[in-house]
Computed example of a mutant assay.
Amino acid sequence: MAGGEGARVPRRGAAGRPLRLSSSRAGAGPGPAGDRHVCPLRLRLGAGLPGRRVGLPGPLGAHGASGPGRGDPGLRGGDGPAHLRGRGAGRGGERVMSGLRVAAACAGSARLERLREYLALAKFPLHLLVLATVACGYGLGSAERVSWAGLLGTLLGAGLTAFGAAAWNQFLEREPDARMRRTMNRPLPAGRIRPAEALVVGSLWALAGVGLLALVANAASAAIAAAIFLLYVGVYTPLKRISTLNTLVGAVPGALPPVLGWTAATGAPGHGAWSLFAILFVWQVPHLLAIAWYAREDFARAGFRMLSVMDADGRLTSRECLLFTLVLLPASMLPVVAGLGGALYIAVAVCAGLGLTAGAVRFVRERTPVQARRVFWGTLAYLPLVLLGLWLDWIFR
């Protein structure tokens, strides 16, 4: 175009065809494909700006959709009619600043996505409940006065150790995870984090966690954290492919966090700490059995030797689940024997235990994935309720 029409942004490519955009490339500029890379956020922001190309000026955007020599006078102050040159120079500066802002937004989005991948590698939501048991053990072990700085340091150290164990677990099980529907989208099997990176990050997390506990708490709590890591990574994880006893073995490191918290506060585990250990040990069995039943096809596909995989009709799995929910009723009274709980805690523990047992009875009668999931959600509700009841009883006594 010539004259006044040259100030308009071309809407078609050099061959007269409509301009097409994709998530990674915009236009048909003469430069290499890498010069035209546009993140989705830039596409969204650029789309609403009148008279503005999607690509960025300069090295970020090459020459735009219409190629060099056909450009908008806004790109170079010396192009186009003389009466538009000054205006074009101003527009070019605005476009540069806008491009830099969009590029910074893209970089921030990439960093946020990377953070999400690391949180998934650490199994962060899962470990919130674990940290709650650590806090419960620390608070109950502190008797009358809680050191909040000590509690925060203990939670940070225990959390880092747990994150490291989760990363190592996913590193060791990345191939089975890729065959399971419930885990195939984890960062390692999905290829979003490299195995070597996961191994290094997990090791750093675990070392930092154990070291922090030794500094802010005591050597005994650091030793318990190291034992949890070794039992979970070195014993439970490989045992899942060897024996159905892996559920009972895995319940040991899963029951030690409140002992860690108690020891961090007092220097040594006491009767109260072991009463909390007993509750968590028994609680984990129906919790894990329920998961293993409704996901038994996944576990079989991955080659894990779970009781549910060997138990075709679910009769043994459901009965064992009911057995441990019944055992949980007297086990939940151990804190009372240890002097930690009173009438309020007894009422909460009995009601929660009876509700969980009722769900297990239904699972025995109707061995379906739906009933197994109800037991699973029942276990997730049971533990916070019992811990909260114990805390409230301790506070108001």
Rank of each mutant, 00 (worst) to 15 (best):
A343I: 08
L334A: 15
F363W: 02
A347S: 15
L340C: 05
A347F: 10
Q371N: 11
R367M: 09
Q371F: 05
G353N: 14
A349S: 14
A352K: 01
G355N: 11
G353A: 15
A352M: 05
A358G: 14
P330I: 10
A331C: 12
R362I: 02
A331Q: 04
G339N: 07
V336K: 01
G339S: 10
M333T: 14
L340H: 02
G353F: 00
L354N: 06
G355K: 04
G342C: 02
M333F: 15
L356S: 01
R362Y: 04
L344Y: 13
L340S: 03
L334E: 12
L344K: 03
V361H: 12
V348G: 04
V337W: 14
G341C: 07
E366D: 15
A338E: 09
A338Q: 12
G342K: 00
G341R: 04
Y345F: 15
T357Y: 07
L354K: 09
A372P: 04
A349F: 01
L329P: 01
A358P: 09
A358V: 10
G353E: 00
V336H: 02
L328M: 12
G342Q: 01
V350N: 00
V348K: 03
G353I: 00
R367W: 05
T357H: 11
V364W: 11
A360F: 11
A338M: 10
P335H: 08
A358T: 11
C351N: 10
A349E: 03
V364I: 09
M333W: 14
R365H: 05
C351E: 13
L340K: 03
S332T: 13
G355I: 04
L356N: 00
P330W: 11
V348S: 05
C351G: 13
A358Q: 13
C351V: 14
G355C: 07
I346T: 15
V370A: 15
A347N: 10
L328C: 09
I346W: 10
Q371C: 06
V348Y: 02
P335G: 06
A331K: 03
